[in-house]
Design a protein around this nucleic acid. Structure first.
Lengths: 114, 114
DNA sequence: GCGGATCGCTACATATATTGTAGCGTGGCG
DNA sequence: CGCCACGCTACAATATATGTAGCGATCCGC
């Protein structure tokens, strides 16, 4: 564990040091619950932190809070007082690319156990 | 830790019990290195397990092996003897949806530290 | 103002997943 | 054979996620 640059305490998504934004993005999205959170906010939905917990199969608030903070810092999610968490404009753009995943998942599941 | 169904030792992607394929897919893709692995196999690339390790910033072989096995079982990646790991037809279909992420990541990174 | 309910969020101990290092068995090639 | 690279695994150390409980703040009806 002596790799990864001298200073990488909290901020700075993994791979962001490489200067390749795609790596930073893939790392951010490849953390547990991140994709799920974005998915649950589809269709301009807004969820309170506790509604999110319910939506995410009662995931622990610790990690949801962590992920929501990361996504807020990344500018993909925003917290609107009195309303809850929502996708930002940027977040919606990102989600656009995930939408076809739904159809893909259906097709994929049919080939799973074959 | 007494949730998550009685029998869920190894097989069975999380969320697959819900009968919603998208959840199973999001869970599979939301594991560390999974998105990165798929990304490194873009453009019909084929990588040996050790080349993959190099491509993935010297990630530990343990987890790469685990992820590659999961992806093989999911039918998204295949191992061709004497050639290496490659995306399957299904895997390529999936990757198609990720391709626009590259452009998105560029745009996103510019808004990061503002 | 005082309950009661809910909000976003955090502490803390436990369980699980990931990491890094070393090395196995196999196969190709000189 | 000696040498090298392959796919893959064991194992101890570390990092990360989980589950439970509860904080302070806010809103609302009484």
């Amino acid at each position: 564990m002596l790799k990864k640059s001298p200073a990488m305490k909290k901020r700075g998504v993994r791979g962001s040091t490489s200067g390749r934004p795609i790596m930073a993005l893939l790392d951010l999205l490849g953390r547990r619950w991140t994709l799920r959170i974005i998915w649950e906010l589809r269709d301009d939905r807004s969820l309170t932190s506790r509604a999110m917990r319910t939506a995410c199969d009662e995931a622990s608030p610790t990690i949801l809070q962590t992920r929501l903070s990361e996504l807020r810092e990344a500018g993909l999610v925003e917290l609107v007082a009195g309303d809850g968490y929502r996708l930002s404009g940027l977040g919606k753009d990102l989600f656009e690319h995930f939408l076809p995943l739904h159809r893909f998942a259906e097709r994929w599941s049919k080939l799973q156990s074959h």
